[in-house]
Each structure stands twice: as structure tokens, then as C-alpha cells.
Design a protein around this nucleic acid. Structure first.
Lengths: 262, 262
DNA sequence: AACCGCGTTTGCTATTGCCAAACTTATTTA
DNA sequence: TAAATAAGTTTGGCAATAGCAAACGCGGTT
């Protein structure tokens, strides 16, 4: 009877369907899709799919050229806006730039959202590596140093909840895929104040990350450094860079607090 | 009786309302808004607004922390995806970089979407100016060189349609605000192959832009250069840079064609 | 020229979104 | 500490509307 689905709360089914269509279009990629293809993909009649696509088109989140529908750039405008509004994004840019220049490596900002990490900003030092993952993309929390830094400061029940929902897929042979092993690792990270990643998300890549806390004490993000194993080793990896990263994370936290009161 | 609104076509009203809420949240900016505020802003009951916000939250396009709702970063992921998928974006990056290094100025890519220009990519030369407008944002077509380059290659009826819908707001005292004057200017641009802007969008800023055509002959984008009046004048403004820009636009077109066949 | 596949439109019905009002929780005031 | 107020959440019932199926229109193909 009731229009609910997940956790007993009511939902607007038409909105769900709209996002189902957006998802379907996304999976079609650059090729785009026609009305019939979309209708089949989401399991509705041609007529209905047509009405949805037209509505979405009016809002610019879908574009159409001679019968082929694709994702529209209005999404980018909204997304960029959301990014710029983000307080952590505003407060972390300078410290991340600083990390990049001081280490010469790639420095990144990842914020927590819905059990994922969203890669929001990067700064490239003189020797910065190129990564395949692009700003704006989500990544799993268990396989990156940034993600683990965030997980380490959540409660065990929150961690288990995220793992139950997202799983622990293996990115490389070194990815932690066991929940108990992960919890042990998080314990260490908490004591140390920085998280390491040794080829856990990409072979040959090492990272160091430190969490960023909101004024209320909850973790909201992590900043860190990524580089090749060849350069990130010894004291530089275990001492120098952790110090730089920890310090920068601290500055971000101060920036957030100051921005709060203004 | 019928569920239509704009041009007789049916629409999904719930989807319209969802975007109304997104718009409302956007206007609240960084502060965010509570359920009641949103309900008032879009003119629906508290209960309904709550259901919508919860649905949108599930999809990540809205986030909530202790009762305050804001735009979510899922929008950024979708938007960045739409951008990366965009064929023109893929094909124009190298030529735009090239323009920037050869001129030392700011080079930009603007693609046409729904009667607006969407600023998708920039490359900064050694002396590049800083602009307030950010990648991902929309801009009017009548007041920028890039926009005029696009308009110049649409039919007069299409231009009139866009102007009717979006108007010709004045950005500076030099913005063209008269439709006939605009049409004359477009005529010149068509003959010349490049569009100029002299303080029409920002005081003291000059731009040169050239259109990019799809294989079917329609304009899809424009690339160009922006810089201070002090540097963009004389032959450099009217001859040298136009040559560079025209040439680069040509290369983009070739890239698009090649990508088409692959 | 007839066919076929695709996109668009429309009438009718069952579904679902919506308001109002009750209920719950948090915050402020006395 | 309690009362009062405000804000968020849930629910019943009715009216609105989303959805299908089927008809229509249109370009491309055999």
C-alpha cells in the first residue's frame, strides 16, 4: 500500500525512476541511447520513457540530438556548484597545494559522502604521478590511505555498516579484503594519526593520508600524498611525509573552525 | 486534464518538483536549508518536502547533516562523467592547450547546450588572466566572443528563439542588447570566421573565438582566447591571434571527424 | 510502393503523490 | 525543571497523475 521501499520511509517513485534512467544513460556512455533502448533498460513502456526523457531534457540533465539521449551538462553545473559550496573544499585547497610543493608529489583531498570517498581536489608537485581516477569520482574507502584514514575515525558499527553495503572488493593483491584485518589496521591508524597504503589500490603506488575532523569531532575528509614506491620509502615514507600531511590536515581543521564562526 | 505544461508535451510533475527543490537548495548555498524552509520555498507541505528530500538523499544528489539539507556530490560525479564523455571535450583539449602556450593567454572551450554556452575546459598560458567564471558554468551566448561565434552559425530563427527565451542582458556598457545589432554583428563574424569581444562581458577584457562544427555542419562549440585589452590590440588582436584560433578550431573539427569513424 | 522499426501522442485506469493533522523529537523560555 | 514552542516525521484518505496499450506519424529499407 504505502509508497516506501528502503527503510519504511516513503519515497517519490517517479524520482527514483528518473534516476534509474540517468543511470541507464550513464551506462550507455558516449554512444547515447534511443527511447526504446532506455525503456527496455529500465523496464517501462516506450511512452513513459519518452515522457521522462523529455522532462529530464527540459532540465538540462539529459540532452538529445536526433533521437539519441545522453547525460547533459546541467549536471556538471550543479555538481561544480556543490563542490565550490563545500566548506572542506574551500578550506583544504591551500594546505593541499602546500603539501604538493613540499613533497613534489601528487596531493589529494577526499571527502566522505554516503560511505564513499569523493575525490574533490588535487595539487601536483614537480614529480607528481598521473592517476586514472579523476576529480569528482567516488572511490571505495577500504583500499586507499585516504579512505582508511576516514574509516579509522568512525565507530566500528559505522565501519561494518559501510562494509556490509559496499563490500571489500580487491583492487590489487594487496587490498585488504577481510573485515577483521581491516579493523586491526584501522586501530593502528588511529594510534598513529596517519594511514598508509602500499599498493592497495594501484600496484606500485604508495600513499600517506591524514583525516580531517569537523568542529564537532566527526571525520569529514582526508588529505594525503600519492607517489611511486620507488620514491616513497624509508624515513621519507614513514616519518617525513606523515609529518607534513598531519600538519596540513591540522591546518585544514583550523581553517574550518575559523570559517564556521565568520 | 493532461499532464503537460510547456509545449503541449506531457511531463512528469514529480521530477519537475524534484528539480525545483534542487534549485531551492542551490539558492540556499552553503548554509543549507531545513525541511520547512524548503517546503515554503517550493510551495508544498512539510510532509511532501520531507519525502522528496529523503528520496533525493538516497540518490546522493542531496546530503543532510543534522537537519540541514545541501546539494550532494553525486551531482559532481554525474557531471564530471557527462563532461568526460563529451566528444568535443575529448577532441578539444590538446588544441586549447596549444592555443594557450602559443599566445601565453587564457584559452577556453565553450560548448553549446540548450541555448547557453557551457564553459568546459581552460588552459592557462604564461600570462593568463584569472576569471571569476568557473569551468562547468553556463554563460549567455550574446556577450562573449565564444557565444557569438556559436550564434553566428545558427539560423536566424534559432538565434531569435534563443534571444526570446534568454533575453539580452547587459553585462557591461558594451554588451550588445539589441537583436538587430546582434544579427549584423553575427553576419560579420560569419564572413570573418572569428568573433571578437571588446569589454562586452567584462570591462577591460578582450576575446577572440572561432566556432567548431560537427561533421554534419552544425556548430557545437567554440574555442578562443581571453586577455586584457592592454595585451590584445593591434595586429596581434586582429590578425595573429585570430589565425591561431581559427587553425586550432580546425584541428578540433578534424579530431572530431576522426573520432567519429573509430 | 509496401513494409518495418522507431519515436510521438492519447484515452483510460490504477497508482501514488499530496495535504492536513496527529505524533515525535529537539530547542528555547520561564 | 518544566512548560512552551518550533522543527522534523509519520499516516489516512482523496484527488491527481503516471503508466500502459494502442493508435498515429515518419523515415529508412527491402
Amino acid at each position: 500500500m504505502s509508497a516506501n521501499s528502503d527503510d519504511g520511509r516513503r519515497r517519490i517513485k517517479s524520482v527514483d525512476k528518473a534516476f534509474l534512467i540517468i543511470q541507464a544513460l550513464r551506462e550507455q556512455g558516449n554512444a547515447g541511447a534511443g527511447v526504446t533502448t532506455v525503456a527496455d533498460a529500465v523496464g517501462m513502456s516506450k511512452g513513459s520513457a519518452h515522457t521522462y526523457l523529455n522532462t529530464l531534457k527540459q532540465h538540462g540533465v539529459v540532452t538529445e540530438q536526433n533521437g539519441r539521449y545522453r547525460l547533459g551538462l546541467q549536471l556538471l553545473e550543479l555538481g561544480e556548484y556543490a563542490k565550490r559550496q563545500n566548506l572542506v573544499y574551500q578550506c583544504a585547497q591551500d594546505p593541499v597545494d602546500e603539501i604538493a610543493t613540499r613533497t613534489g608529489e601528487l596531493a589529494r583531498l577526499v571527502v566522505k559522502e554516503q560511505g564513499y570517498g569523493v575525490y574533490l581536489y588535487k595539487a601536483e608537485g614537480d614529480n607528481a604521478i598521473e592517476t586514472t581516477i579523476q576529480p569528482g569520482q567516488r572511490e571505495y574507502l577500504h583500499c586507499t590511505s585516504q579512505g582508511k584514514a576516514i574509516l579509522a575515525h568512525l565507530s566500528e558499527s559505522e565501519v561494518r555498516e559501510i562494509v556490509d553495503e559496499r563490500g571489500l572488493p580487491a583492487r590489487t593483491e594487496d587490498t585488504i579484503t577481510d573485515i577483521d584485518e581491516l579493523l586491526d589496521e584501522l586501530e593502528e591508524i588511529r594510534e598513529r594519526g596517519v594511514a598508509f597504503s602500499r599498493s592497495e589500490s594501484t600496484r606500485g603506488m604508495r600513499c600517506v593520508a591524514s583525516p580531517v575532523h569537523a568542529p564537532d569531532g566527526s571525520v569529514v575528509a582526508a588529505i594525503g600524498v600519492c607517489g611511486p614506491m620507488s620514491r616513497l620509502q624509508g624515513d621519507r615514507f614513514t616519518e617525513e611525509i606523515p609529518d607534513i600531511v598531519r600538519n596540513a590536515a591540522n591546518i585544514v581543521e583550523i581553517n574550518i573552525q575559523m570559517n564556521r564562526n565568520s
